[in-house]
Simulated assay, not measured.
Amino acid sequence: MNGLKNNHYRIPLFYVVTLTFWFSMYTCVPILASYLEYLGASYDTIGLIIGMYGLTQLLLRIPVGVVSDRYHKRRIFITFGLMFSLLSGIGIVFVQEVSWILILRALAGAAAATWVDFTILFSSYFAKEHTTKAIGNISFFSTLGQMVGILSGGWFAAAFGFESAFIVGGIAGAIGLSCRFSLSKIPISVLKRLP
């Protein structure tokens, strides 16, 4: 029983994973177009690169959900999502070719497509009557991560240059990925019944 009680920290840990996941993908949002223009990309290309994030999500969100439901391996998809967010954030620091940045933004869209697995795994920790509250809580942290990521990305870029925003996003992605390995398989609904 004591081992189960010690798992109570995993709900706050899931919040940290969620916040850093979205933070890592959104630090580049306020500066990406300016950075691409600085690299000499045309406006058509800039639009394509920025839109690639949404296009990849559109193409992958349903297939990811279907495969995840079929094999019930939510944590694997969460791991891939966190790895993709890390790579898409920090990768821009190391490449300055527009075609590579296009691929990295597609990777960020693939990461975002795994969000369904975050919500399903997190809500499974709660009894059915508490799933609405669970989704509300996790949605708060996803939005908070996006907002803080955008604000931080703009601030770091203004203070230290474009690359700093990408580095900060990569660091957040690495934190989220390292925390993910401590997520529990034990449904928290079991923990809630403990004294």
Rank of each mutant, 00 (worst) to 15 (best):
S42I: 03
K73W: 13
I135M: 05
Y125E: 05
K185Q: 15
R74L: 04
G153Q: 09
K133V: 13
T132A: 15
M25K: 10
K133S: 14
I135H: 08
A165H: 01
S178F: 13
F94C: 02
I11E: 03
A127M: 10
P187R: 07
L4W: 15
A113P: 10
G169C: 04
I150R: 01
G176L: 08
R61D: 13
R193T: 12
V66M: 14
L151R: 07
Y35L: 00
A165I: 00
I120W: 11
Y43T: 15
L144S: 12
A165N: 03
I31F: 03
C28K: 15
A159H: 00
E97M: 14
G169T: 01
A165R: 00
T18F: 05
S189E: 02
F156T: 00
M147K: 09
T45R: 08
T131F: 06
A113W: 11
S124C: 14
A41T: 02
E129L: 14
W115K: 10
Y26T: 04
F14T: 02
H130V: 12
Y53E: 11
I76R: 09
I150H: 00
V66F: 13
A33K: 05
S184F: 00
Y43A: 15
G51C: 01
V93W: 05
A134H: 03
G173Q: 09
D44L: 14
W115H: 11
I135E: 02
I150F: 00
E97N: 13
S184P: 01
G176D: 08
V16L: 01
F140C: 10
L151H: 08
Y26L: 05
L59N: 07
V64G: 08
K133W: 14
S142Q: 12
Q57T: 14
I11Y: 05
F77D: 07
L58D: 07
L183E: 04
R75K: 15
L58T: 05
L104Y: 07
L121H: 03
I138L: 02
G81C: 06
W155E: 03
G153M: 09
L104Q: 09
G170P: 02
A33W: 01
Q146P: 02
L19M: 14
H72S: 09
I78E: 05
A174C: 10
W100K: 08
I78N: 04
V98M: 06
G54D: 09
T45F: 04
R74W: 06
K192P: 10
I92M: 03
H130K: 15
M147V: 10
I120M: 12
F14E: 01
G153A: 10
Y125T: 04
Y71N: 15
A110R: 09
A33D: 03
A134L: 05
C179E: 03
P12L: 00
L39N: 02
V17K: 01
G51Q: 02
G51D: 01
F118Y: 13
H130L: 13
A134C: 04
W100M: 12
L194D: 13
I120N: 11
Y26M: 06
Y38E: 07
G173Y: 10
I103V: 09
I92N: 02
I78S: 04
